[in-house]
C-alpha cells in the first residue's frame, strides 16, 4: 500500500480543509520517513479572559481551553522532549497536546505568557471548552 506523501501540496491542502471543516486548529503526524505539522492561521486555542476584577496589574490572566474534546497530554508520548517544560512560553510554543483518535493536535501558547496553573492532568479526557491552562500574558 503506497503511503501518502506529506510534501504533496494537494495532500496538505486537503488536510487543511479537513481541519477547517472539523474546527480543529492543527495536527501533527509522524512517520519514520516523514513528519507533518499543520497549525492553521486562525489556530490558537480558545482563550477566555477572566473577569476584569481578577486581572493582575500590568498583566492579563486568561484561560487556555480545549478547542475540541480529546485526551489531554502534557507531551507527545513518542517525543517527550517536545514538551515546553518552562512556565514561561513564547507565542506558538507547544504547551500540550490533545489526542483525538490517532491524531495528536498540538496546543500552542496564544501569546508570550507565564503558565500559572496546569488545570488538566496528563491522560485526562477533556471536553470542548474545558480549561487546560491558566496563563498570565506578558506585556
Amino acid at each position: 500500500m503506497s503511503q501518502v506523501d506529506f510534501t504533496d501540496p494537494a495532500t496538505i491542502a486537503e488536510l487543511m480543509a479537513a481541519l477547517e471543516a472539523a474546527g480543529v486548529d492543527g495536527l501533527q503526524l509522524e512517520r519514520p520517513d516523514q513528519g507533518l505539522r499543520i497549525i492553521l492561521a486562525r489556530g490558537r486555542p480558545a482563550v477566555i479572559r477572566r473577569p476584569e476584577g481578577l486581572a493582575v496589574a500590568g498583566a492579563s490572566r486568561t484561560t487556555v481551553k480545549a478547542p475540541i474534546a480529546g485526551v489531554f497530554l502534557t507531551h507527545d508520548p513518542s517525543r517527550p522532549t517536545t514538551l515546553h517544560r518552562s512556565d514561561d512560553v513564547e507565542q506558538g510554543d507547544i504547551i500540550g497536546f490533545l489526542r483525538i483518535g490517532p491524531i495528536l493536535v498540538p496546543l500552542t501558547a496564544p501569546a508570550s505568557a507565564r503558565i500559572m496553573r496546569r488545570v488538566a492532568e496528563h491522560g485526562a479526557i477533556v471536553g470542548f471548552g474545558d480549561p487546560l491552562f491558566e496563563i498570565e500574558l506578558q506585556s
Partner: peptide, 10 residues
C-alpha cells in the same frame, strides 16, 4: 462527528 468522537473517548 463530535458525538462519535465523544463515544470513542468515553
Amino acid at each position: 462527528d463530535a458525538l462519535l468522537l465523544a463515544a470513542r473517548l468515553s
